[in-house]
Design a protein around this nucleic acid. Structure first.
Lengths: 204, 204, 204, 204
DNA sequence: AGTTAAGCGAGACGGTACGTCCGGTCTTGAA
DNA sequence: TTCAAGACCGGACGTACCGTCTCGCTTAACT
């Protein structure tokens, strides 16, 4: 799937970066609801047409901005592997909790989320470019655990990843509860052991 | 917390209902992004001012509309209890899957979700008025299972509810995968048994 | 012709006066263009309906306000008569010039004028109640001059009055020139003597 | 003095003409009181912003429309000169009377008048662009009469013009009497000969 | 003297128009 | 051809008033 026009040689890299930077800055300053294409163009010192020429919507601009930021940080996003799956997962989820508690990151991710929720095309793009690589890294860590005999060999890794991460993101998105390290730990334990953990099989 | 003006005796019940109905209808027809206060007013045969007089934003109108709809259906929202927890949960989650696969309901719930994600005040209202009662019903079912010895007595029910429901809503919201009955079943099983299920304790 | 409802015994004199006073005050403060019925009602501490019950338009309110003011000053409005017509007319026109140069009176009279220009019914009312008595006084002075042999006996007094006063009011209304005592004098002289004054009859 | 933004090369001449035409049409159809910017925009097939971009008020639009109309007709506005001043003036004033008795023209000129009365800036513009040229033509005719010895050489032409024309416009504006050819004639005669005409100098 | 209907303050209501913001398209002139 | 600039048509915003319509209340007039 291709949402944006293929880059041509004529495209101004200067303008492109200015637009993405302006979008990122503005979303952090005024929030997504008040973000406008005109505002981005003005802030970037760019004609509106230059935005419309290369992106189909403000969501796409924002998406590209986040994408560019993510890629700048380097594609390597492997999860830690100390051999202790539970500890490693807690480490990662605690870091996620910290990130979501940072106001700037919170605003940006909410903006992105709103776009994805509303726009199926962006959702696909998100699945391919942002969530995909991340999910691969998560699954790789779980696969390693499988190979070490710490998880069943027939475990559906997609479901497993969602079991571990979605309680956190759901609570964050809808603000249905506090986001703490304790909560991250509780989720990891519950996901790994199951809600029935410790009960004799016969009682189930 | 009070988002809307307190009702006075002077308020027109006719107009109120017309507005809520129009909002609900329109969001199902054109989606939330194209929902406008003007559109609601026109559809409801009402002056714009009558909306602005009683609600601070279109999100608040929509929220009230959903709320009124939920309350009309009667407060009874108890989950089924056949004694078989796993089967009951699967029944409920399959029904949820079906609901989310209905375009009109999908549009409505996405609209609501977008508002909640963006507006902390609405999020509080949501937690109190819509999500709260639902969550209580879910916890009640789990508590019954605890009392029947099917779940550990010290289980944190808030976490438990999130473990069961959030994978579904997360996958729906961000469209990260297909929403099927099979998926609902897989989530219930994984949540109850844990990702490590069946492994000897020593290998963990 | 009757523009306003006939007064009944039940009518509140307090409210009536409050409304007229508020209208007069507001027109002086914010100008006629920004004068609103709601504004008058609020300022007068009166319900809107009380205005609509007794007056058909804001122009009618203003008109009544001016009328009440005029009648308060006493109906006697005879022009001075020293026996010297030209001098007397100059005295009166100079006073008119002074009045029109007063900002408050200027604003009020412009407001009244705008209403009369736009609303034929108000124009009739104006002719009967405000302009009429004034014009009678003017004609009375001219009639006295006729009787003294200072003006032709067959002079059309309506035309005469307009010849004398309309240059002044026209210049004021459209601001086509400065309003000064010298101008008042020039008009009186030109009106009395004619533009051809002093030329031998044969040359005409 | 400049009321409207200076035209740039970018301005759409098509839109400009459509707006002025629509304004003129509408004022003739519904009258000035019911003339609205939205109405003009809709009739002209133009965005409201395009009006607000170039004119500060509906009065300014109307003014420009009248101005454009006047300039379209060609600058030639000389008064007739048969050598007989009185006859020529009567011809012109009778034509004016006829014009003012035409409902469409009446509505348009009243609208213009109301704006001028209320807005000093428009009054200046009016004096410069519309009334000015007309007044010059009138003064030119009177000057010709002066040169022919039919009027005193020291006559103040500004006052003279006002003496002749303002009775007519005043009576029209405030509807204080019928506008007829006879009235036009009477005014011309009175203005030229003076109210005292025919009286021996000694009696004055 | 008690009843009753009007006038009253208040303000909600369906509307119209305001003047502004922004979306997305189109045009101009410089590089 | 791209770009900055910005005019253009259009749609929605949130506000101000319009003129109508209840609501209770006060208050004068007529039982």
């Amino acid at each position: 799937m291709q949402r944006t026009k293929p880059d041509t040689a004529r495209r101004s890299e200067t303008s492109r970066r200015a637009i993405l930077t302006a979008a990122l800055d503005l979303v952090g300053e005024v929030g997504y609801a008040k973000l406008s294409i005109e505002g981005i163009a003005a802030r970037a010192g760019v004609g509106k047409q230059t935005i419309y020429r290369w992106w189909p919507s403000k969501g796409a601009v924002l998406f590209d901005a986040v994408l560019a930021g993510a890629e700048d940080e380097g594609g390597e996003t492997a999860l830690p592997d100390t051999g202790d799956l539970e500890a490693d997962l807690k480490t990662v989820l605690r870091a996620t909790v910290d990130g979501l508690n940072d106001p700037a990151q919170d605003r940006l991710l909410r903006a992105l989320s709103v776009e994805i929720v509303q726009d199926p095309q962006l959702a696909v793009l998100y699945a391919e470019r942002l969530d995909g690589p991340m999910k691969e890294a998560k699954k790789a860590r779980l696969r390693a655990a499988q190979e070490a005999g710490q998880l069943p060999a027939d475990l559906d890794l997609d479901v497993a990843v969602e079991m571990i991460w979605s309680p956190l993101t759901a609570r964050w998105l809808h603000r249905t509860g506090p986001l703490t390290h304790a909560y991250a730990d509780a989720v990891v334990e519950a996901a790994l052991n199951g809600l029935r953990r410790g009960l004799p099989d016969g009682s189930r």
